[in-house]
Design a protein around this nucleic acid. Structure first.
Lengths: 140, 140
DNA sequence: AAAATATTTGCAACATTGTTGCATTTGATA
DNA sequence: TATCAAATGCAACAATGTTGCAAATATTTT
C-alpha cells in the first residue's frame, strides 16, 4: 500500500492535513532502511520545527498507523514506517549495541506465546539486542 | 540461590557494601510478586533516600545481576529480583494495560529466533502487553 | 577499639524527554 | 477569497537520567 504512495498521498488517505512537517517526517523515514530517532529525523529534515510540533507530529503519525515507534530500553526511541505491505503485523526489532541502529526484522515474526491462564495479550514488544552485520564485519 | 538468602547475604556474596538503602531495596523487591518501579519501591521503603542514591543503588544492583530492569515503552521502568533459581535465564515479561503492573512470566521462555545472516544477539527484551488475570476478573 | 581507607550518600546542578495551554498561523473547504 | 478547523510555536513545567564534589559511612588495618 505505502510502497507506491508519496507522503502527500499517505496523509490524504488518512485524512490528515498535509503539513510540511508531517510530509518531511514521512519522507525522511521512507528514505531510510533503519528506524530513526527524533534527532536523526530532525537533522535530515529540510525545515526547522519546534520540538512540540515534532512531538505532536509523531503522535499523530503513530496513532494513524503510518509510523510505528520502537523503544529500546528507556532512553532510545526510534520510528519506522508502518508499512503494511513490507512489514508483517508483529515483527521483531534489532538493536545494535555498537552502532545504536535499530532495524525492523521483517523475517522474524512473533508467535504469541502461551500465557498463564487468565491472561490475554494485545501487543508484543520484541527487541533483540546484539551486533549487526556491518559492525561485525568492521570488527574483523 | 537467592531464595534462601537475605539481603545482607546477597550483598556480601557480591562484594557490595551492606548499606541500608541497598538492603531495603532488595528486601522490598524480594517481598513483591510483581516488578516494582522506583517510586513503588521508595514508598515501601523504611528510610528516606535521595533520588541520586536510589538511582545509583539500582545501577549497582543491576550491574551485579542481583536485580533486573524491565522497561515498558519509554516511560515505565520496573525492577524485579534476578533470581537465578526461580527465573529462567531469558524470560518474557507481562505488562497489564489496566493496572500497569509488570510480572515476570517464568513460564514463557524466549527461544532465540533465527536472525538474518551476519547478525548475532546477546540479549532479548520481550514484553507482552495485555490484560492480567486480576483485571480481567474485575471486568466481569 | 580506633584509625585509615575506600566507597557511598546527599546535594546542587544540569540535560533530555514528555507534556499541556494558549495565541497565532496555516491548510482545507465552501 | 473568506471561513473554520486544525496545526504550529512558544512558554512553561514534570519526570527522569546523569555528573561532580564534599560529607558521611562501611570495611579493613593497625
Amino acid at each position: 500500500m505505502f510502497a507506491t504512495m508519496n507522503p502527500k498521498e499517505i496523509l490524504n488517505s488518512h485524512n490528515l492535513k498535509r503539513t510540511s512537517c508531517r510530509e518531511g517526517i514521512i519522507e525522511v523515514i521512507m528514505s531510510s532502511d533503519k528506524a530513526l530517532s527524533e534527532n536523526e529525523i530532525r537533522d535530515r529534515l529540510f525545515g526547522n520545527y519546534d520540538r512540540t510540533t515534532f512531538y505532536r507530529s509523531f503522535k499523530t503519525l503513530v496513532e494513524s498507523s503510518i509510523v510505528h515507534k520502537i523503544v529500546v530500553d528507556n532512553n532510545l526511541v526510534k520510528y519506522a514506517l508502518d508499512n503494511q505491505l513490507t512489514h508483517k503485523n508483529e515483527h521483531a526489532h534489532f538493536y545494535c549495541n555498537e552502532c545504536n541502529s535499530v532495524v525492523c526484522l521483517e523475517s522474524v515474526t512473533i508467535e504469541k506465546p502461551a500465557l498463564p491462564e487468565g491472561f490475554s495479550s494485545s501487543e508484543i514488544d520484541f527487541v533483540i539486542k546484539g551486533t549487526c552485520k556491518l559492525c561485525k564485519e568492521k570488527a574483523e
